[in-house]
Each structure stands twice: as C-alpha cells, then as structure tokens.
Amino acid sequence: MADKNRSLFRRATHRVFRISERYFNQRRAYDYSPVATSVLKHPSPVLGDVMSGSMFDPCVVELPEGGLAMFVSRRDKGSIERWDSKDGIAWNYKSTALSPAVDASAWDSTVNRAGVLLSSSGWLMWYTGQNGGSSAIGFATSVDGLTFNRVVATPVIAPELEHEGGSAMNPCVMAEGNGYRMWYAAGEDYEPDVICEARSNDGVNWEKLVKPVLTKGNEPYDAHKVGGCSVLRLSELSLAMFYIGYQNLDVARICLALSDDNGLTWRRSSVNPLVGPERNAWDSHSVYKPSALLGRDGVVKLWYNARKNRNEYVGFATIKDIGCLI
C-alpha cells in the first residue's frame, strides 16, 4: 500500500509540475512572427475538426494522374488514413491505410507518423509503431495505395544507439539510385530530440549513420530539440530539410536546414523560423511536422499539423520561391 501511495504521489506531483511548466512554456509562443516574409499561410485548418479529433503528422504524395494523397495520423483510432485532394486544401476521405496491430501487446499497437513513396513497383510506407512509451519504424506496402500490408512483423528501424533514446519515429524516405535514404527523429518518446539518417537497398535492412545529422541549435527557436522532417532534393548535391524546431517542450515551429554536399552537413536558413503559432488562431500554441512538395515553378507547398490546447489539425502554407530561403 505504501508503494502504491508513493506512486500516486509521484504521478500527482508530475502532473502539477507539467501544468505549471506548460503554462510558462506557452508564454514563448509569440517570440517570433507566425510566418517568415516569404510564406503565405492558409487561415484555417485544411483537415481535421471537432468530429474527427486530432489529425497530425501528414505526408503528402503527388498522384501520377494528378492531384494529391495525404497519409495522416488519426489519434482517436491509432491509425493512418488516406485523404485525397485536387488543390491541397479541400480533402476527401479515401480509406484507413494502416490499422493498429490486433494484438494490444504488439510493438505497433498504435500506428502513426508515416512516410510514403509511390514507386514503379507499388506503394511503400514506412510508419511509426508505438506501445508502452517507446516507438519504432515498420514497413508496409500496397498495390492500390488504399490498404497497406505489413512486410515484416518486426521494426525495420528500432532505437539502439545512445542518441536514439527509446524512440525512432517520423520516417521521411527518399528514393536514391537503387536504394533509399531515410531521415527519422529519435530520442524521447513524447517529443524526439535529434534527426538521424539511415540507408537501405531494399527498404527493410537499414544501415544507420553513427551520429545524428541535425541536433538542437544555438538560436532560441530550436535550442531545446529538433524533430520530424521532410526532405526535398533541389539539385544533384543540394537538399532542403523542413523540420520541427522546439523552443521548449510545448512550443514548436517549422524551420529549414540546407545542405550543399548531399546531406553530409547541414546549415540553418537565415530566415528561420518559417511557420509558427499565431495569436488567437487555431494554431496558437504550437506548429509541428511538415510535409513539403516542390513545384517546377519553385513554389513550395507545405502541410503541417498545429495545436491549440489539445486539438491538433492539419494546416497549409506556400512559399513563393524557395530561392529566397537559401
């Protein structure tokens, strides 16, 4: 009974501490402008409402026949859904793309935070599986992009290295040559700490880089930690990484890092942060995981999830010319 009372006391103490911490953290939400000068933000969420509950961590893919498919996490169901759109703003539900494991004790009893590619052989999905306060990355495929099936029963990326802590999540995968490159977030399970990279020939067996490719920075906007990203190729050697920068545990913004040597080193954009909380708006508390597409005209389309209190929905922004961020 004494042990139970001590446990209840610790939980109650932690809850009081987090309420106080969140209150003081949230006061930093408006330290920066809600958008950089080159960014135009849609005024309201494009996906999610009180009926759906929180929708978060989108991954948007261009369809060969035109239009877009979004693979988005749905918190109340612990699943990944597909929604389609013609313009990136109005979205229509298509399917539950991946459901949680039937076994409640499985490593992926909750699934979310997917990275999806459409290849010549079909649809490929790397997803985050969660259970018991830890996260790992699994792999699933689909013929039609509507329903995905797990390729292997175990994670293809699990936290093993010291800097990965107890969590590997938010895969962003790029096809390169005859294989794949993955950038993923790792560290604490509540919010990750670093961005890492791994490479694979088959999408199942991955070789990790020994050190993270991006860690917390010197400026306040990402001085606490960094998280989930979306990487675009600009040229043969140039990459752009849109990522979550955390000023503290409860205030995050979308930031940009650039590489001129094919991802060996990264430098932060001088115009950071790009998108952040806006006072009295639906995204007034925090802005999270980006999904970016680059048009032939140089315009970047950016989808992201954002939070007011506990409600998370998906927003949309455009960057008129990525050149102005470099």
Rank of each mutant, 00 (worst) to 15 (best):
K289L: 06
A186G: 10
I322S: 05
L8C: 07
W206I: 10
V143W: 02
C172I: 03
P273V: 01
K77V: 08
V152M: 03
S54D: 13
V102Y: 08
C255M: 03
D250K: 07
K320H: 06
D87A: 00
Y288E: 13
N170P: 03
V156Q: 02
D250E: 14
K211M: 12
W183P: 05
G122V: 12
T110I: 00
L8Y: 14
A101R: 05
R307K: 04
I326S: 11
V173A: 04
N170R: 11
L117F: 02
G115R: 11
E162N: 11
V39T: 05
G66I: 08
A198C: 11
N149Y: 06
D283K: 10
P64C: 11
I254S: 02
Y184H: 07
A223F: 06
S73L: 04
D250Y: 15
N262I: 13
D283F: 02
W107Q: 06
L214H: 08
V39Y: 02
Y127N: 07
V300Y: 03
L118F: 00
S38T: 15
T96K: 03
A106Q: 00
I195M: 10
L325K: 04
W183Y: 15
N5M: 09
W126K: 01
A281P: 03
Y30I: 07
F139M: 02
T128C: 14
F242Q: 06
Y30E: 14
S44H: 07
D297N: 15
A240E: 01
R253T: 06
S52Q: 10
A140C: 07
P290T: 11
M55H: 05
K208D: 04
G177V: 09
Y304D: 12
F56N: 11
M241S: 04
S135G: 11
D108E: 01
V173R: 02
V16N: 10
A12T: 12
R268W: 01
S230K: 10
Y127L: 04
A306L: 11
G203H: 08
G298F: 12
K308A: 15
D250H: 15
L118E: 01
N305C: 13
L232A: 08
I326H: 05
C59K: 09
I19K: 11
M125A: 04
R10G: 04
K308N: 14
L161V: 05
T96F: 03
W282V: 08
L209M: 15
R18G: 04
L302H: 10
P171A: 01
W266N: 01
S134F: 00
V204H: 08
Y23V: 02
G177Q: 08
V116P: 08
D31T: 02
S235E: 00
S79G: 06
Y288V: 02
R113C: 07
R10Y: 09
N311F: 05
V156D: 02
Q130N: 05
W282T: 09
E62Y: 01
P64F: 12
H163D: 09
R18W: 10
Y313L: 12
G298Y: 12
N25C: 14
A136V: 00
P171R: 01
Q247T: 10
G53D: 14
S20Q: 12
G177E: 10
V300M: 06
A175H: 14
S85E: 04
E164T: 01
L146E: 15
C59S: 10
K77L: 14
T110H: 13
